[in-house]
Amino acid sequence: MKQPAIYIITNESNTVIYVGVTSNLLQRVFLHKQKLTKGFSKRFNLDKLVHFELYDDMDSAIYREKRLKRWQRSWKERLIKKVNPEWKDLYQELL
């Protein structure tokens, strides 16, 4: 699945939210699930994909990611609940 995307992952209890950008969403989420990405997501056990958006080009995806990172948490929660009200892990849908 090589396509620019932004994604939001969280932990099992939805207490921490991480916004990222990638050119291969399936691979990136797999790395998070296997705890192969060092840093913030591994430290806070973030491996549940709750939102993603696909883009035609990486510049647009990066622009969106930077904007989302500046959003208040409540705004991010509304974005997630709009499409995924139960905060289900969307990874299986990608497979």
Rank of each mutant, 00 (worst) to 15 (best):
M1T: 10
K2Q: 09
Q3S: 15
Q3D: 10
P4W: 05
P4C: 03
Y7R: 06
I8C: 12
I8G: 12
I9N: 10
N11A: 00
N11C: 08
N11R: 04
N14G: 03
N14S: 14
T15W: 13
V16Y: 07
V16I: 04
I17Y: 08
Y18K: 01
V19L: 06
G20S: 07
G20V: 11
V21K: 01
T22R: 01
N24M: 07
L25F: 03
L25D: 02
L26K: 13
F30G: 14
L31C: 05
L31Q: 15
H32F: 13
H32S: 12
H32V: 10
K33N: 02
K33W: 04
Q34S: 13
K35F: 00
L36S: 11
T37V: 15
T37P: 03
K38Y: 03
G39Q: 06
F40Y: 11
F40N: 13
S41P: 05
S41F: 02
K42L: 14
K42A: 10
N45H: 09
N45C: 05
N45T: 01
L46I: 10
D47W: 08
K48C: 07
L49A: 11
L49S: 06
L49C: 07
V50Q: 04
V50S: 09
V50I: 13
H51V: 02
H51G: 00
F52R: 11
E53L: 06
E53I: 06
L54H: 08
L54G: 07
L54A: 13
D56V: 07
D56G: 14
D57S: 12
M58A: 12
D59I: 12
S60V: 07
A61T: 08
I62K: 14
Y63N: 05
E65C: 00
K66F: 04
R67A: 10
R67G: 10
K69N: 08
K69L: 10
K69C: 15
W71I: 06
W71C: 11
Q72G: 14
Q72A: 06
Q72D: 11
S74L: 14
S74C: 14
W75P: 05
E77H: 04
E77Q: 14
E77S: 05
R78F: 03
R78L: 14
R78S: 11
L79D: 07
K81E: 12
K81V: 03
K82I: 03
N84M: 04
P85S: 00
E86Q: 15
W87N: 11
L90K: 06
L90P: 03
L90V: 01
L90C: 00
Q92A: 09
Q92N: 06
E93L: 08
E93R: 09
L95A: 11
